[in-house]
Design a protein around this nucleic acid. Structure first.
Lengths: 138, 138
DNA sequence: TAAAAATACTCCATAGGTATTTTAT
DNA sequence: ATAAAATACCTATGGAGTATTTTTA
């Protein structure tokens, strides 16, 4: 069983017609028939009633359709989850700051920043000037 | 992206080693490398750090692993859902019965039956002897 | 230097195409 | 009679194999 077969199956189930589904999928009708046949063989059930004028889902087909759609959704989400990592900045930064800053301007800045970059975790290191400069050098 | 590639990916992620994963998958190591490479290309990210002594998941790899496993689980469930239909009896039956039976022995019998055959829906038609016999003939 | 992944190539299984026949309305 | 699926056969993409080289701990 492959995702390609699930895509094919869902399209046929949607249109109730191999010929039209094959068109939309940009493949030849016999190629589509073949793939559905392979899928039916692997599952051990008929997924469609062949009625001469199109097709209709069997009971097993109805059942499988739900699972097939869910699987495709999961696959798409898995893909998107890594794409998301590429395009949006992410990681962690440590902000060294004096106590005065931490108590005054910093909080509101961090709120704005966190909204703009939800993928970035911000840590605050509060200290005096000298230790902060040392830490920065390291 | 195909389910086969997800299976391969999950196995490599589990063993952190292409060679051992290829063995378990019963394919050659270069074939496995090729498939992972194709997958990485399609996703647009590296899934593994190649460290000379095995491999480790990248951040994107960690992210994708969760989605891949969920997708495979969904696919398996979709398969099982139709297999279930084959082996376990299912459908609906209508039981014609006299009022006396409905009030006495039938309820407890139905409880037992429903537990044994959860896939079968039972309907009761309560009536007198003659109409029930007529309905049965039809 | 040794274990492991990448490369280079070859081969073959199978996805997909074309032409035609069969089927059911 | 006709739209639609199945069948038969062919082609070609790409998955998988073998041999070898490259990499890095």
């Amino acid at each position: 069983m492959e995702l390609r077969q699930l895509v094919y199956f869902v399209e046929v189930a949607r249109l109730n017609n191999f010929t039209k589904a094959a068109e939309r999928l940009r493949i030849a009708q016999p190629a589509l028939s073949q793939q559905i046949r392979n899928l039916e063989q692997e599952l051990g059930v008929k997924l469609f009633h062949r009625t001469g004028r199109g097709v209709t889902l069997t009971e097993a087909g109805e059942q499988f359709l739900m699972g097939a759609e869910k699987t495709l959704t999961e696959a798409q989400m898995a893909k998107d989850s890594v794409k998301g990592l590429i395009n949006s900045p992410h990681g962690k930064i440590v902000v060294g700051a004096l106590e005065s800053m931490v108590q005054t301007r910093l909080p509101s800045l961090l709120v704005v920043f966190s909204k703009k970059y939800p993928g970035i975790k911000v840590f605050i290191r509060e200290n005096t000037t000298e230790p902060l400069l040392e830490a920065l050098k390291k």
